[in-house]
Design a protein around this nucleic acid. Structure first.
Lengths: 255, 255
DNA sequence: CGTTCGATTGAGGAAGATCAATTAATGTGG
DNA sequence: CCACATTAATTGATCTTCCTCAATCGAACG
């Protein structure tokens, strides 16, 4: 495991820039528009990644930022004493590597959870491009800002929600993230094991499994015919409602 | 409570720019140097704040970033259903308000926990200044990057450490933050109640109290003669050692 | 000097972790 | 394509940690 990515292979896959997109990236710009702008202004090196590839690792010298064009990444923090913690999940349009700017070294691992394509942008080159194209700077800052805001939401989830609600909120976030990118949300494929989900949410894999079973029993989610990796979400709002139900102690548990 | 700050009173206090400082802010620049640069390049509006003042609130229109010159802030996230979560603590040299860039609105409250001074910088003006002074941009990005990296460390603490270790790690972080700014760490004054600390760390105020009592019993910390708000930390490394002891199950509990 | 707020400490209970056994999915070599 | 090995997921039983509830104490303040 932990293969470094194949060094400098120009990607033979389509960029997919023509895909429709609904979510707002920054000031009325959606993910697809933003990617288009970045591609045109920066002409980044494109790189195909496969499950398990690491784009950068903790301690490695910082130099590049990465933009995720397709696929899916996890960000893993490592402590000196060997603890591992999934601290973030990255989807299409997300940036990777901001943590390296301050210290000159990345402070975590970025691991691909699926086949995908990332765009490599030298931080130096990016700054130069920003100087002549202010919109680029705005997009960069918006991406960093969104990451900060979302990290805070994650902390709030972990600190204030019971285990079942945390899992429900996790699925809700995942579905909404896909929706913002114009993807289907009625059936999503979790490319993470229960152990990885549990690590991210601060609970054991058994608790994740039990929470999912409970969500399925309450018909908030469903499982596909084959495999429990695919989760059916008929109505995203039902997940939010479930979270609220976990928070209010009094109201009766149906059935 | 929740007073908004006195609107536009120019600060009658010294900036304290000549203070010594040891920690690295970004690429060999320390906190004091960075503040000096910011003050010279931006000539920001200065504003005195008192305990309980809020610099901005969730939902308020974004426009300014704030640099903390002295004092101490907490950042509070609010959920739609009324949960409150302390998601960050800010010390001298820290920036406030990054979360507002992406959405055009702040997503949390910034509340002063002590008398202090903040510098108000219009985001527009900052961008303009960055265009002509690239170092400024580097400093800005470093501040955002550090915030991202630290938020991840917080999540890791909450997810992987038992309650006692979390409190110890919290004190360690506080002491190191002060040390980086050239302040004393052998005796620190927590300007937060047990309830606020507990909220930040994802536990109850009783658990915080018990953890502190345990730390005092093990002589990892001490309490000042009067009041339990002041914590003596004879050796910061003892706090790290305590965290490690919490993680390794086998070794005997002394006494 | 009483009131209020914050902190401490104890007792009991509940959420979730741990341990363990079983089942389902995935992958491999024949 | 199948038997087997391997990994992931589920479910149950027990145990630990931490939360909840409650009483007490100390400090700060009007």
């Amino acid at each position: 495991m932990l293969n470094t990515v194949t060094p400098s292979k120009t990607a033979p896959v389509p960029t997919g820039l023509a895909l429709p997109s609904i979510g707002r990236d920054c000031e009325g710009r959606n993910t697809a528009d933003t990617l288009k702008l970045l591609c045109e202004q920066l002409t980044p090196q494109r790189r195909v990644v496969h499950t398990g590839d690491t784009i950068y690792q903790a301690g490695e010298r910082f130099g590049n930022l990465y933009i995720l064009n397709s696929g899916f990444f996890k960000i893993v923090n490592l402590s000196a004493d060997g603890r591992e913690q999934v601290v973030g999940l990255k989807f299409r349009g997300d940036w990777l590597g901001f943590d390296g700017i301050a210290g000159g070294r990345y402070s975590c691992d970025a691991v691909a959870m699926d086949t995908g394509e990332i765009w490599v942008v030298s931080y130096e080159a990016l700054l130069a491009a920003c100087a002549s194209h202010p919109t680029l700077l705005q997009v960069l800052h918006a991406a960093m800002s969104r990451e900060i805001a979302h990290d805070r939401d994650s902390l709030m989830s972990v600190c204030t929600l019971p285990a079942d609600a945390r899992v429900a909120d996790f699925l809700r976030y995942w579905a909404e993230t896909l929706a913002e990118r114009g993807m289907r949300t009625d059936e999503i494929t979790l490319r993470m094991t229960r152990a990885e989900i549990g690590n991210y949410l601060g609970m054991t894999l058994e608790s994740v499994s039990r929470a999912l079973s409970r969500l399925a029993r309450d018909n908030v989610i469903g499982f596909a015919t084959k495999g429990r990796r695919d989760v059916q979400i008929p109505d995203v709002r039902a997940l939010s409602a479930f979270v609220q139900r976990c928070l209010s102690p009094a109201p009766a548990m149906l059935q």
